[in-house]
Amino acid sequence: MSLRTKSKILVFFLALVCYLALTSFTDYQEIIAGIAAALIVTLLAGGLLLQTEGKKNLFKRSLKAVEYMFRFLWEMTKANLHVAYLVLHPNLPIKPGIVKIKSSLKNESAITVLANSITLTPGTLTIDYNEKTGELYIHWIDVKSVDEKKDTEIIGAKFENLLKEVFE
């Protein structure tokens, strides 16, 4: 089974479940309409969802994903407190700037999750990603250093290792 077919089947069932969740699981008319809608969606955009072949150990990876979620929440809480401290401090000790960090992740989804995690964490914001060099440009409210390696350590490393296990 090719990747495209797999992706289409996955989209079809996801779409069907989403549609029925929006309406009702019991009404036969809604189920017919849901199947029709899911079919059209699959024909239009079915092949787009999966782009890389899935790895083995789905269960282990899911566990890692849950762990990642908790790690992310914890980091977010910490960052929230830090930004709150910066805002409430009478001197407003901020030092905004744009820094560059290097990511060793190769998987597209992994990079997207990393970039979005960085954006969601208060204080940092992903601006751009360079596909050739694997560098992320980040706006940081409180720049601690201008050294690329050190920045990578501070911002990226806490997510990156876990993400590598989840996606690769």
Binding site: A15, V41, T42, I111, D128, E131
Partner: peptide, 13 residues
């Protein structure tokens, strides 16, 4: 960029 493309790919359906 790749980030926007990936999100689009996942969410367009």
């Amino acid at each position: 960029t790749l980030i926007v493309r990936t999100i689009t790919r996942i969410s367009v359906w």
